[in-house]
Design a protein around this nucleic acid. Structure first.
Lengths: 343, 343
DNA sequence: TTGTAGGCGTTATCAT
DNA sequence: ATGATAACGCCTACAA
């Protein structure tokens, strides 16, 4: 059962009566090796099942060919789409992925960052946890010029690039849409406003209100963890508000859905009594009745963009710094949950 | 901007006037190093920011501390839960994850397997693509005694363990339930019956039918890719069947939902005209109206189980072979989509 | 076009 | 309890 020794370039060299150097070069398609020799090398390598030892190579090259990823959660539609997008690009360029989740905890994010650093990932793609307060845990990376790219939930830093959508604008559009439908008492369900996405959405929400001379009311902002269950709880709070609100803008579809289901159970009609707009265009938004108006933006694309940007950076194409913020497109998708007057 | 050299155990050794060997041992908490020396080593390591070089260690130890994962898709609720479960266990035991997706293609699965092999993962966790026909692409692993564990979509092999649920029983229960509700013309929407999960579910479906003396009809089995869109297409086919079926058992919730939505648009009432049972207990099943009866089993748990099993194997606890099939629990969750007579 | 030699950082073996 | 040495497999500066 003893594992046989691995085939190395030396084995190839010996059998071919050439040096390991030549084999190494041949395998890398080095220009100064003759076609004939290369062919012999590749053929034999194939035949005897040679495979490169990445550790030896990485040890020598001081490079891991690995991209680190830290996300708040793995199992949401949005995040798994992002990962799929990253995987797609990374794979094409010969990079592996080291993935970990912070479970929305600052502490776990810090320890994940440490693991990533110790694993010497070549670059890091991160979306911040709810309660991440600063970027100290990434200082190691910045100091060593290891590129860090933030996506979706970002924080500005002079040494990193951010990839996101215009959350303020999206929230403005969402809220504005509700107002146009005749809503005057609009609740905003969101997450702790530490993160840019929630801060900016709140800003957009307020902006739309003020532009229509609707007074902003602190008690209309409900802070939750945006889970479906939290949506149901928020519904209870909303039912107790007097007067009952006539529109709700939620920072995430599954929370919106949880809220809608609970309200419906309590005899509220949507959109007649209360209109709804969500965020993310999760598939669930097309299943809930009435279908949920929402903000659409592609996680897959965001993942691809992040990965591509990072890899371009490795190749010296795109610099990573604060001036480099990439804003992806988002759009309001209007469905019946927000259409007050007829369909 | 030149990167400073990395801190190595030699740097620590030099500053402490001891040998690198001692440092190496100290760092690994080797019993034969004095507490005093260990403390000095750890303190200095901390101070000057030493971090182990995994490549050097792996090169030396011939071990990667990495678990490879190949899944058909990353962005489904079930799969992302599995990954989350794996990550949870792997992380606790100091293992990294190398993840790739086959996109339901045999070809891509083969090339992913090659990548994994070349990356020298210590073990492999895999769920097979729709059209995977054999396990030749894993032979390399078997030959080198690298453990391969299949989960959910598995194929039997004398050198590997399978982790799954009793799909036959689950499908039997689902179909039986529909029959008990009075259904006599039951359609089964599923994926190509190459994979065990679909083969077994078909078996269970047939078994329930025959036990109730209901004749199996080939044309009642609709083979799709189980996407939501495919569900909508299946609905069109179903509407054309004469007589129209009165029950449908779908191999996956999102496909069931797509089908339900399309049928509802065509004036079919669920469950009165057609009752529905899905599979997977995707969150979407609690959103669709009527709520979808489904088979529940935990992806997170399946992921944890797979990872734990693999890691136990590394530690010499659990052998990996064909006699070792782990069957996880699954259950029928009855919701209104299948309840013909009142609720 | 090909070869020689040394080193990347770690750990196991064999001393002391 | 600690140290010297070799080896893991690869790559590249330098030499031929």
């Amino acid at each position: 059962m003893a594992n046989e020794r691995e085939v190395t370039i030396y084995d190839i060299a010996k059998k071919l009566n050439i040096s390991a150097t030549t084999v190494s070069r041949g395998l890398q398609d080095h220009p100064s090796i003759s076609k004939k020799t290369k062919k012999k090398i590749f053929d034999l390598a194939d035949e005897i099942g040679y495979r490169i030892n990445h550790f030896a190579r990485n040890l020598r090259n001081q490079k891991t060919n690995t991209i680190g990823i830290i996300v708040p959660r793995l199992n949401s539609y949005f995040m798994s789409s992002v990962i799929a997008g990253i995987e797609n690009v990374a794979n094409d360029h010969g990079y592996g992925l080291l993935i970990s989740q912070s479970s929305e905890s600052f502490g776990k994010e810090i320890s994940s960052a440490k693991t990533m650093f110790d694993s010497r990932v070549d670059g890091l793609l991160t979306s911040l946890a709810f309660d991440t307060a600063d970027l100290k845990h990434f200082e190691h990376f910045f100091k060593k010029n290891i590129p860090v790219i933030f996506f979706d939930r970002v924080m500005e830093h002079e040494n990193s690039t951010s990839i996101l959508i215009d959350n303020r604008q999206a929230a403005y559009n969402a809220t504005n849409h509700l107002i146009e439908q005749g809503c005057k008492k609009i609740v905003h369900i969101t997450a702790p406003i530490l993160q840019n996405v929630y801060k900016d959405r709140l800003k957009g929400y307020k902006e739309a209100l003020s532009q229509h001379k609707i007074k902003f009311r602190e008690e209309y902002v409900i802070v939750t963890d945006l889970s479906q269950e939290a949506g149901a709880e928020a519904a209870q709070a909303i039912l107790k508000m007097k007067p009952v609100p006539d529109g709700i803008f939620v920072s995430n579809d599954s929370c919106a859905v949880g809220c809608m289901l609970a309200l419906k159970q309590n005899g509220i009609s949507i959109p007649e009594d209360i209109a709804f707009v969500g965020f993310n265009n999760d598939p669930i938004s097309k299943v809930i009745e009435p279908n949920l108006t929402t903000i659409n933006y592609s996680g897959y694309e965001m993942g691809q963009t992040a990965a591509r940007h990072l890899i371009n950076h490795f190749n010296g194409t795109s610099p990573i710094n604060c001036t480099n913020t990439i804003v992806l497109r988002s759009e309001l998708i209007i469905r019946s949950s927000s259409l007050k007057k007829g369909k």
